[in-house]
Amino acid sequence: MSHIFTMGGGVKHDGQSLKERVSEVEWNARVELALCYRLIAHFGLTDTIYNHISYRIPGEEEHLLLNPFGLLYEEVTASSLIKVDVEGNILDDTTGLGINKAGFIIHGAIHEARPDVNCVLHTHTDAGLAVAANAAGLLPISQPAALFMNRIGYHDYEGIVLRMDERQRLVKNLGAYNFLILRNHGLLTAGASIAKTFQWMLILQQACSVQVKALAGNPELTELTPAAIEEAQVAHDQSDAEVDWQALRRMIDRYAPDYRD
């Protein structure tokens, strides 16, 4: 595809394995992020080799991990993840594949502008695209949708994200939120942890899928009341995403434990 570019290449380290030469903190971050890629693949939220999930390495505020451009999400492992700085300069790439420039423009902008955000997850699912094309946006018609009401930003489509000046508008439209619908483009969640960011995306995807199905045939819909929305949000905000995350880890460990490699 002519609008996709790669940046950087592999670096050799005298035969030393990646796990041996990075810190324990970085390696653990790689394992967690690789797990997230496998989970996105498991739930069918991928767009072949496109999109990203990025993660800021704990204790290294300017260093991020994300997928090499060319691997399917089901192929991503801890050691294949690429380490870059917030400007997209490659610091470590064992694959030699480089990164998707268009995708990094989005992720790099959010990481740079939001120090509270450690993980950014972006998808191009059919349901997400359908809601992103709906002028009304996400509707308050389901329990999953309740989480996002009055808490989600919208960013108008400007074409394939290759212009650096779009970053400031994207960041402005996200604002202090953790959720963003990119009009005619897809969904984005951003959070302090991988577990929470993934959980939010799964719920946002469900809300979009329910909306598409509910609108089929143009029926009259029942909307949630403001009081019900507030109650649902309070309950969710008090929930622990780590419980879900560990259950999902056990599932992936049973049939695809190579994400840890």
Results as ranks from 00 to 15, higher is better:
2 S>A: 14
2 S>K: 05
3 H>V: 14
4 I>Q: 10
4 I>G: 03
5 F>H: 12
6 T>W: 02
7 M>A: 10
9 G>E: 14
9 G>I: 09
12 K>M: 11
12 K>P: 09
12 K>T: 15
15 G>A: 07
19 K>C: 05
20 E>T: 14
20 E>W: 01
21 R>I: 10
25 V>T: 15
27 W>N: 04
30 R>D: 03
30 R>W: 09
34 A>Y: 09
34 A>V: 04
35 L>A: 08
35 L>H: 12
42 H>W: 09
42 H>F: 14
43 F>V: 12
45 L>W: 09
46 T>P: 08
48 T>S: 14
49 I>N: 05
50 Y>E: 10
52 H>W: 02
55 Y>Q: 06
57 I>W: 06
59 G>P: 04
59 G>M: 06
61 E>P: 06
68 P>K: 01
69 F>W: 08
70 G>H: 02
71 L>H: 12
74 E>H: 13
77 T>E: 07
77 T>R: 10
81 L>Y: 11
81 L>N: 05
82 I>R: 01
84 V>D: 03
84 V>C: 12
86 V>L: 14
92 D>N: 11
92 D>M: 06
93 D>A: 03
96 G>L: 03
98 G>T: 07
99 I>Y: 02
102 A>F: 04
103 G>L: 03
110 I>L: 07
113 A>H: 05
116 D>S: 13
116 D>A: 11
116 D>G: 11
120 V>S: 05
120 V>T: 10
120 V>E: 00
122 H>E: 00
126 D>F: 13
129 L>N: 12
130 A>T: 11
132 A>G: 12
140 P>H: 07
143 Q>K: 08
147 L>R: 15
151 R>T: 08
152 I>P: 02
154 Y>P: 00
157 Y>R: 00
159 G>F: 05
162 L>M: 13
162 L>S: 14
162 L>T: 14
166 E>P: 00
166 E>L: 04
169 R>E: 13
170 L>K: 02
172 K>H: 12
173 N>G: 01
176 A>L: 10
176 A>S: 15
177 Y>K: 11
177 Y>D: 13
177 Y>M: 09
180 L>A: 08
181 I>P: 01
185 H>L: 07
187 L>G: 06
190 A>E: 04
192 A>S: 14
196 K>S: 13
196 K>P: 00
198 F>A: 15
204 L>A: 09
204 L>G: 05
205 Q>P: 01
205 Q>D: 15
209 S>N: 08
210 V>R: 00
213 K>W: 00
216 A>M: 07
218 N>Q: 15
218 N>I: 07
219 P>N: 05
219 P>G: 08
220 E>Y: 05
222 T>P: 03
222 T>N: 10
224 L>C: 04
225 T>F: 03
227 A>Y: 05
228 A>M: 08
229 I>Q: 03
229 I>K: 01
229 I>W: 07
231 E>Y: 10
235 A>S: 12
242 E>T: 12
242 E>K: 11
243 V>G: 00
244 D>C: 04
247 A>F: 06
248 L>D: 14
250 R>A: 15
255 Y>R: 05
258 D>Q: 14
260 R>Q: 15
